[in-house]
Design a protein around this nucleic acid. Structure first.
Lengths: 215, 215
DNA sequence: GCTTGAATGATACGTACGTATGAATAAATC
DNA sequence: GATTTATTCATACGTACGTATCATTCAAGC
């Protein structure tokens, strides 16, 4: 029922979450079967139904767990910036928003690539449920950044600003996705990841700072 | 149902391509069944196997048909620019590359949204075949733009330039994807699409023009 | 020691899928 | 008009999936 399973064993629930996170990120939602998840988790097929209710609810749980640290870091970064000045430099805002998408890793081994892969899955999955997976928390963070950017970039219409913020998400998510999907052979992943992080900040800061489109 | 003039209707193969393009773009590759495609096309279930061999080969055919006009427009745009000067303004290059992603429509009704949706599907689909769907034509166009951008943006490492070009694709594809997935109610689609097109050019021109990231 | 309730295990059900097959049909050729 | 060729049709096969059911295990609580 409402009880949270608290047993001393290496929690089946957590192992299912871990396995599902891996497989959802690697093969997408539809490409991952409950059987593959439970097999990887060393659990029984019925365990997903018992602990989460359904495959969709498992996905929602995975996404929540993955997105939470990203949101927290984004929120903390914005708080830190606004504590200094109400109108931080655009580059700082971009870094505070996009940085966590590169840094925050979901309790895994290969770093944030899986996170972005999951974000990508959500963005691109045509299932209507996908949109609700992220939950309202993400929206609230986005709204706060939206307001901050609006202060720093006057003259930009709300629609164009929203477009630009989506651009940030697109660039970071797709970048990480590509890195994961075609890994450069013989090239150290962390180095590439850190370079991409800096390139992204440069790229996106310039993009955000662009003057409003003349109508 | 006796005397319906079959001769006037387009051939089954084309109708299957149309239906598949729609459904693949709307529900993704895995989310679209052959049965749904043939039903929508008014064809028999076996028609896909007969005309294309398999579902994967059908997808490849769809992608080829969709990407071809985009590639052609990109190529023509670059040719026109280079005919004038070997070093066109960055904004012109961006528009020549990204513009067709907004404009070129795959013989459909709702315009280029489906195209970008398909590109998105390819980019985000974890299936290994997906990468080969686009074919080598796209690569050759990209390489030509890469060279042109390299001339215009000296000091940029090939890796960072490649990152930025991927950024162009990300922003346009994700934008169109979002527009299609959550259509603004009561808002004229073409107007929004044209605004997004201009916003994207602004956004991406500034991003591409950014000075190289200091290492 | 027996009960209890959470957790896991084995398995069955109904469905949907991609593909293959062979018959039926239309069109073209001779 | 008969034969051939290119499609279209109806349908069957094997598989994989999500979910549901029910028995079993196991650590406390009394």
């Amino acid at each position: 029922m409402g009880r949270v399973p608290r047993v001393a064993t290496p929690d089946t629930r957590t192992q299912i979450l871990d396995a599902a996170e891996h497989l959802f990120a690697e093969h997408g939602y539809r490409g991952t079967s409950i059987r593959a998840i439970t097999t990887r988790a060393g659990a029984n097929l019925a365990a997903v139904g018992y602990h989460f209710g359904s495959k969709a609810e498992l996905m929602a749980a995975v996404v929540r767990r993955v997105i939470e640290p990203v949101n927290a870091a984004q929120r903390a970064g914005l708080d830190a910036l606004l504590a200094r000045t109400p109108e931080p430099p655009v580059g700082d805002l971009v870094e505070a928003f996009a940085g966590p998408l590169f840094d925050e890793m979901p309790a895994g081994d290969e770093g944030g690539a899986r996170t972005s892969r999951l974000i990508m899955t959500i963005l691109s999955d045509p299932a209507e449920e996908a949109r609700s997976w992220a939950g309202p928390a993400e929206d609230s963070v986005r709204e706060r950044y939206l307001a901050a950017f609006a202060r720093v970039l006057p003259g930009l219409s709300p629609e164009e600003l929203r477009f630009r913020m989506r651009g940030i998400l697109s660039v970071t998510a797709v970048d990480r996705l590509e890195i994961q999907q075609r890994p450069t052979p013989g090239c150290a992943s962390p180095a590439v990841g850190q370079a991409a992080r800096r390139w992204a900040i440069t790229f996106l800061t310039a993009a955000m700072s662009a003057p409003p489109t003349r109508t």
